[in-house]
Design a binder for these strands. Structure first.
Lengths: 367, 367
DNA sequence: GCGCCGGTGGACACCGGTGTCATTTCATGA
DNA sequence: TCATGAAATGACACCGGTGTCCACCGGCGC
């Protein structure tokens, strides 16, 4: 420890936190404060504050005069000082561990569009929900930055301890989920069960009977939803999803390749595979490619997500599309509503229905 | 305007900014302030502040006692109050308009890893560099949120007016670029010219002579760099990039499909196409698929980026890989260095060399 | 025993906004 | 004309930290 510091040094270095002097002649348009505006308008800072916050208790004439001055000198209130007094940070956290980059980016941009309008900013927080430090890390993030609210994306949004922690921290949150998880909550739902049913219907209509599915990892709620929805919908149409035609993947390209390897070695071979998501579907393409199977003639493949990948693949992939940007926007609007009215009743969930985008990878079975 | 408000209403609503009373019995672990810590430790708040900021002018015994108390009650200083006093926000902006989602996400995560360690957060700002409100928007973002620094990603990082604006706002920035743009700047460089040369070498070694290229849009600096590097390197090996074998795309899937349509209708047909990036390469795949051309037997295709798409395509795509996360981390470290020492000399640029990842899409020409 | 010195800790103002409540202004009816 | 009360404004403390500057403390040389 540098205990050698002299008094002189102390003076100069001011506790080791040197701050450059207000120094130099900053441009004419140096930062204005509320006091400057008050002085210019010949009113108290409180009145200026009232104008900023659109209080109705200011005479119209006074208001416009002050507003004009603020406009003229280009004044904007300091969000930190404002936040300090309001006990708000005007920051919303986006907590995610979804490896699907386009998904996250789209949610992000959708959310931002809504947040910015209300003066909020978005801070992103990728996380590892299996890390040992997961909860403390989130706790730390929120209390350190005093986030006003957070948006949780799947799969971390399915974590059961998180809502509890957030409630304790009094931090409003919105979860994006693939199915209702509990009642008392603000969420944006993507109805995966119904979506999977739509896939089943599509395959049934095409005339497939030997239908296989690659399920997502058991730790993902969407995996169960999609399986249940798919399997039930097939049953409704007199078709069955045979156990030997089901493989558990990991929503990844590699697992898609491995699982389809397995499924395609069954005899008789399935004529259609519903991959859990687009990444998995790409893995199926890979296996088909290596085995010389033609899609869709020898094999129909269906994905889920409509990520950019879906239209890039050859042949292009039939898949389920979610309005991801809208979901981001919705989530943002919900958090803000919750913040504005934090003691109010829980805000009703919004349900999103993905729809099927039919492309080249699905066709009638040829044998 | 609701001028009907009564005095009673004024009292109750307090200028339309209702704030729930400190209300209720918050948990035992309610928020602690520096005053609480000072009281508990029997010192003044300034001494606690010294401990927080690691000032050497505190007796070791005092320091540890205070540190223990902070630890015990789980105290963390309020970043807003801290920022207000320090005139810092501890926020770094990430400004981008790159449509490549995995690229942005990776930069983001790389940057975050470095930023978090130093107590900074990242706020993301997608933008439209061609929008009429582009510069005012950025200006607004930075002065409103008092960002301590920003990171600019290509292509918006190539905008010439931005550095000027940022300098005027006294906002430290780091640009990620595909080639040096000017001297006096902090940047992270990806050497696109050299990378493209590496592609040329690969194709030359495979024995290709009829080589085509799909160039990125003229508004992207990387497009010029890659073209120049590629063309020159071919020339060095006695090969030429004939004008009729060059098409200008837009770094998109669609443009890749259209440009390759054009290139593949030339006679003689090129045996290899260097697509400007992976998206474009996917477009080439599409055209090859429609025309029944086999990759790599009939056509070698090379991409650039090594986005996830590259390994998903069948056959998998030979491409140039950049260490994107590292670039994000580097950029973050540079901004922080610049912030810490804002009057210091410009920080030297760091140069990144992508490397070739050879996969299945490149082979010897068959005819 | 005294004054000097560097090391240590505290009182106080301040960062830029806001809440509370008192005070002033103004229109109204008696 | 003046009392009256609502509307408009202001004074002041406060949010939770930090910088400045001064006072105290103990050990040293004299």
């Amino acid at each position: 420890m540098a205990k050698k510091a002299t008094k002189a040094a102390q003076r100069a270095a001011s506790d080791l936190q040197p701050v450059e002097p207000p120094a130099a002649s900053r441009d004419a348009d140096k930062k204005h404060t509320i006091n400057d505006i008050a002085r210019l308008a010949n009113v108290s800072k409180k009145t200026v504050s009232r104008v900023i916050n659109e209080s109705p208790f200011v005479r119209e004439e006074t208001r416009t005069r002050i507003a004009e001055i603020m406009q003229r000198v280009g004044y904007t209130p300091d969000p930190q000082a404002r936040g300090l007094a309001f006990r708000r940070s005007f920051l919303i956290g986006l907590i995610y561990d979804n490896p699907n980059a386009p998904y996250v980016i789209n949610i992000q941009e959708g959310a931002l569009a809504a947040l910015r309008r209300m003066g909020y900013e978005l801070v992103v927080h990728p996380c590892d929900r299996n890390g040992s430090e997961f909860l403390p890390e989130i706790r730390n993030l929120i209390s350190r930055q005093k986030l006003d609210g957070v948006i949780l994306l799947p799969p971390v949004s399915e974590n059961a301890e998180l809502p509890e922690l957030l409630r304790k921290l009094q931090c409003p949150y919105v979860r994006v989920l693939s199915a209702p998880l509990d009642e008392s909550d603000n969420l944006v739902l993507s109805m995966d069960r119904q979506s999977a049913a739509e896939v089943a219907e599509h395959l049934a209509k095409l005339g497939h009977t030997r239908i296989a599915m690659i399920v997502g990892p058991a730790s993902y709620r969407s995996a169960h939803e999609r399986l249940a929805g798919f399997s039930n919908a097939l049953a409704d149409r007199g078709l069955t999803l045979a156990p030997e035609y089901v493989a558990e993947g990991a929503y990844t390209f590699e697992s898609g390749a491995a699982c389809s390897e397995l499924l395609l070695s069954r005899s008789p071979r399935p004529t259609a595979i519903f991959a859990g998501n687009d990444e998995t579907a790409a893995g199926v393409y890979r296996t088909a490619y290596l085995r010389g199977l033609k899609i869709p003639d020898d094999l129909t493949v269906i994905g889920f997500d409509d990520s950019p990948l879906a239209s890039r693949l050859c042949p292009s992939l039939t898949t389920m599309r979610q309005p991801i940007r809208d979901m981001g926007r919705l989530a943002a609007e919900k958090v803000m509503a919750k913040i504005a009215n934090s003691d109010g009743p829980p805000i009703a969930a919004t349900t999103i229905f993905p729809h099927l985008v039919v492309r080249e990878s699905s066709g009638r079975p040829k044998n």
